Computed example of a mutant assay.
Amino acid sequence: MMTVLRRVAIEDKDWVFDTDNSQSLLLAAQAAGIRLPSSCRNGTCRTCLCQLAGGSVRYLIEWPGLSLDEKREGYILPCVALAESDLVLRVPAARRIE
Rank of each mutant, 00 (worst) to 15 (best):
L89K: 05
V16N: 04
G33K: 06
R95L: 14
S67V: 09
A9E: 13
A81Q: 07
K13Q: 09
A32Y: 08
W15S: 14
L25W: 02
C50Q: 03
G55V: 01
G54E: 14
Q23K: 13
C40I: 03
S56I: 00
R35N: 12
E84H: 02
S85H: 02
R58C: 12
A9I: 06
L82E: 11
Q51G: 04
R58G: 06
I10H: 08
R96W: 08
L27G: 00
G65H: 11
S56R: 09
D69S: 10
C79M: 11
S38R: 12
L49W: 10
D14A: 14
L26I: 05
R41Y: 03
K71W: 03
V88A: 11
P92I: 05
I97E: 08
E98Y: 08
D14K: 08
L68S: 10
S39R: 12
S56N: 06
L87A: 09
P78W: 06
E73P: 00
L60N: 00
R90L: 06
R95I: 12
P92A: 07
R95H: 06
V8W: 07
N42M: 05
Y75H: 12
C45V: 13
S56W: 01
W15F: 13
V4D: 01
P37M: 00
Y59L: 01
S39T: 01
E62P: 02
L52G: 02
Y75S: 08
S56A: 15
A83H: 14
Y75W: 15
A31W: 00
S38Q: 13
T3P: 07
A32S: 14
E84W: 02
I97H: 10
A29D: 07
D69E: 09
D12M: 03
L5Q: 12
